[in-house]
Design a protein around this nucleic acid. Sequence first.
RNA 1: GCGGGCGUAGCCGAACUGGUACAGGCGCACGGCUUAGGACCGUGUGGCGCAAGCCAUGGAGGUUCGAGUCCUCUCGCCCGCACCA
Length: 819
Amino acid sequence: MARTIAPVYDPQAIEPKWRDAWKKAGLFRVTEDRSKPKFYILVMFPYPSGPLHMGHFRNYVMGDAFARYKLMRGFNVLNPFGWDAFGLPAENAAIQSGIPPRVSIEQNIAISKHELDIMGVLYAWDREVSTCNDDYYRWTQWLFLKFLEMGLAYKQKAAVNWCPKDNTVLANEQIVNGVCWRCGTKPTKKELEQWFFRITAYAQRLLDDLQQLDRWPERVRVMQANWIGRSEGAELEFPVEGDGSLRVFTTRPDTVFGATFMVIAPEHPLVATIVTPHQRRNVDDYIEKTKSETEIERLSTEHKKTGVFTGAYALNPFSNERIPIWIADYVLATYGTGAIMGVPAHDARDFEFATNHALPIREVISPTPRPGGEPLAAAFEAHEGFLVNSGAYDGLSVRDGIARITADAERRGIGKPTVTFRLRDWLISRQRYWGAPIPIVYCPDHGIVPVPEDQLPVRLPEPVEFRSDGQNPLLHTPAFVNTTCPKCGKPARRETDTIDTFVDSSWYFLRYTSPKDDREPFDKTRADFWMPVDQYIGGIEHAILHLLYSRFFMKALFDAKMVSVDEPFAALFSQGMIQRNGAVMSKSKGNGVVPDDIVERYGADTGRVYEMFLGPPDQDAEWNDRGVDGVARFLHRVWRLVVGEEDEVVAGISPVSMEDLSRKRHETIEKVTRDVEAFHFNTAMSALMELANAMQDYLQGGGRRTQSWEAVCRDLTLLLGPFAPHLAEELWQRQGGDGLLVFQPWPAVDPAQLRRSQVTVVVQVDGRLRDRIEMPSGTDAAAAQTLALTRTNVQRAIAGRRVQRAVHVPDRLINLVTG
RNA sequence: GCGGGCGUAGCCGAACUGGUACAGGCGCACGGCUUAGGACCGUGUGGCGCAAGCCAUGGAGGUUCGAGUCCUCUCGCCCGCACCA
């Protein structure tokens, strides 16, 4: 075949051409085609915050390469993209600059799209969604109403986390390290009527089903399990002297005889009734103090366990002992029953509290069946022990003690086994403008009235006037607030809070399956066809937030019979971040590398391959400008190998035979395939470099460009396709390939080609390497041993001793054991 | 404190199920080619030793014919959670 003139590799000259070709060919435009297996790949959609840098691009390149790979493997690949476009930054920018959020968001989307485009990253753009468009948020509102109907949405007054900087409430998950996840401000508590989603109703299922997610990173599953925080124990009821009773939750009912005090949270309802007049003043002072100090103080690990005596006593239902009731802020009102029994001998926190307040410490669990005489220096919390000082229960193991005491409490009607979760309901109200309005009307006569489905969307008024005090502009937009009751038509007031943007992103992967549907959030048949997402890719920072919320949504929608699977993401990959000069790449640090510069200087393919090559994809990696040069060299070399003209025979290199090169070809196919499936893109790139190096050695050793050579070139080109797609298409065309490379089948391994006739077998004597011998593949143990014994190195090592036995690993190793 | 993970060349890192430790890239050295080039090509590149060889995967033990890989202890680093009873 006549080769066309092959100038040097000039990425800028060829890249735009192929991007156009892919667009024309409708790459990633798909339907529910049942003739091929489906594959739904998804990269977490971004908040459009402005220019993307190469740090952001790592997961987009990975996703794009993987999608192209799956296409070549014959899958029907759904590879959509969109924008998590509601949210605070655009609103804050609007307050400062006066540019309406929609305008800045649309500008940012245009910039981001340009950058994806020049990097050769393509999606099913015909399925693009943007959460701030009313054809999307209409269905977010619809789902809110669905949850309301299912009893999964409710309004309640609660002490909620309030971010004073962002002027809005936050869900528990959105407090990270004790501060607002977005702006780092310490939240305060506020009593507000707010909307919640009843995620706690799914706590057990969210926990149990983590086990199915065997293709998720272990650490993400562990984080979710910890967050859900299931604990098994019992509720026990202690009569309060005089009147009423106090319920506590404990994981250690076996220690009930060691309860020497009770503690209730400062917010506990009993505070109002049980405090004796004598103690009232102290209690009021204490509660006042905890209120003012709380957030900053309570976050400190050094926080001392303070508290105050109520003057009231409870009766231990097992020992009939009189126990003082205290108030302390180390007991949380929102967990369990908001009250505990203090067992200082067997709980570190209670131990500290008892020590601070001179309360008795009584050992009731002992490592041996007899009580130890010494006073405890610290709480003994282990479960390996026996009950002591516990009346009829003495001598029982902890396990049996828990079972017996719980059972007896239940029989006597003063307790029951209980499971408690750390997970709280999801607070979804936000006192902000740039989000989906909660579709609720407040009527003087009918109270809370959902906006009827056919009146959706409740449109966000645009434009609005932003206020310098940070208050939600919706409050001050009468045309929005003033409405009529859907039930009676009388004047009514609209809810002015908007929906947490994490709700928007909890179902977008379903919307992609039927993005234009104007009758429902998504078409069930299509969602059933594509779901679950087969491969999800995104940052670890969403390990709890987005991923837990989305799992909850999927289970709720499953129960509503709107979907047929109840886990959204079958496999999850969390990529590491890219750093440069020791810090995570970011615009503000000035250490970002932008795609435009890479494209201009090296071409998009070099940038793409470098991002795949620079380290294990799940770990953080350091961007090294020189490393980019190395990758550029590699791609230039590939160009010369495949379409170059002048082959120079070089003296002094070890030549590679065509037999070796053909084997290398198939080894590379095998390795790259295995690595891509496992997301080991860095080693896949190494394998391609090795193949190119071997090809070069072949030519420089005098090898000719025969048909076998052309076959090696073809496979190298195909294997490079997902990673350096522009270069690969160009080479494919120049080699006379039919159609677009991206639609070609992935190369197949020929096992016959992997076989070697001669192998290098390692000879060890007593486990130490002594020699290497070339021998025919398949040589048996006896023959290998005989061969080994002919070698002088081996004889010297044996030094006249007898070989007792030999360990033989066929075609790899023979170990002669003398001792 | 609890949970998860990681320590391999000057640097980033390979090593699938225990079987030739360090593939690939960067850097460095020398050489070639070039009017020039952060271009390209070649050779070399863990330590000690003239060599045979010995020593090397944070450290110390152990299991095994054989350990970077498995087990125990230990040191260091990173990441989550952090009064959840």
